[in-house]
Nucleic acid binder design. Structure first.
Lengths: 157, 157
DNA sequence: TCGCAAGCGATAAAGATTATCGGTAATTGC
DNA sequence: GCAATTACCGATAATCTTTATCGCTTGCGA
């Protein structure tokens, strides 16, 4: 994908700012990092092209869209293996309520973050995804009481 | 903050698109949702002002910036209570390696997502944040093997 | 030491965003 | 039931932002 991403101090400053807010005008960003606007544009474009910036997205509070409940589900698979994991990946991809998922070490194999309209909705989903799934040996639901730290920038340098 | 967010079909289409990509020109978005460009701008601005769109950010792969390791840490607190949680929030806010955290129900009180340069770096951080923290009774580290589903849009309708 | 490559700022050209307008359809109040 | 009001559209014009082009400086290697 890239031959050798080398980031200098300006790039790092840009990444710090852009991970917090992509809506600011580049004029303001240029001011903040200490470059001319055109130089900033060139660098931002390079960061995008080289894939350092993976994508730029809008963050929406789930609650606002009618998803007030959030769970973290710890799943233990029947026989862990690439095959089984791949099966779960395919399944998760089809379910919009599955917001993020990780394959992890430890007692469980997967950590899955899910949003729900209500407990009934969650129950229906959990049944379909986990209870009624032959790959799943067991799962444990952790209901999110509070989002204690919102998604934060990856540290730069 | 808002009196009554009411979203029609156009708003929902916009939110779906913007949660995936804010970089597309609004002309293209307008085409996709079936409105004129000015109408799209008006709606997007409204969504921002009303806080339906919380913020717009750049997503960076941690690996690219030298954070190839990722952990989910399950933390059990000494005596759970608003005071203790608040203390942990303050602490997490100061640590850039803590990328996201939730207060959850169940055997543990907190789920914390952390990035690390290497195991040594993680160990140092975990010691400081958890082992040497009087509020923390115990913690369990789940090393992320694979990011199975990347951060995905909150479902709209 | 010279030439080349990388990267800057300034400016100009192109493109995107916002403001303004008149028109239309839905909603409210009489 | 009908006029007035409101909400929201598209089209166009004005503004602002982004990209392209240029000539210049600086650092590096031959």
């Amino acid at each position: 994908m890239n031959t050798s991403i080398s980031l200098d101090d300006f790039d790092r400053r840009l990444l710090r700012l852009l991970q917090i807010d992509t809506q600011r005008s580049v004029a303001a960003i240029a001011e903040a990092v200490g470059l001319s606007a055109p130089a900033c544009y060139r660098r931002i474009r390079r960061l995008r092209e080289e894939g350092v910036i993976e994508r730029e997205i809008a963050i929406v509070r789930p609650r606002t869209l009618g998803w007030p409940l959030s769970m973290i589900v710890m799943v233990t698979l029947e026989r862990e293996g690439a095959r089984t994991i791949d099966e779960m990946i395919r399944l998760f991809a089809l379910e919009p309520e599955v917001v993020e998922a990780w394959n992890v070490t430890g007692d469980h194999d997967l950590a899955v973050r899910i949003v729900a309209r209500d407990m009934e909705g969650y129950d229906e989903l959990a049944t379909r995804l986990f209870s009624a799934n032959e790959h799943v040996r067991s799962f444990k639901t952790l209901v999110v009481i509070r989002h204690v730290k919102p998604l934060s920038p990856v540290p730069v340098e």
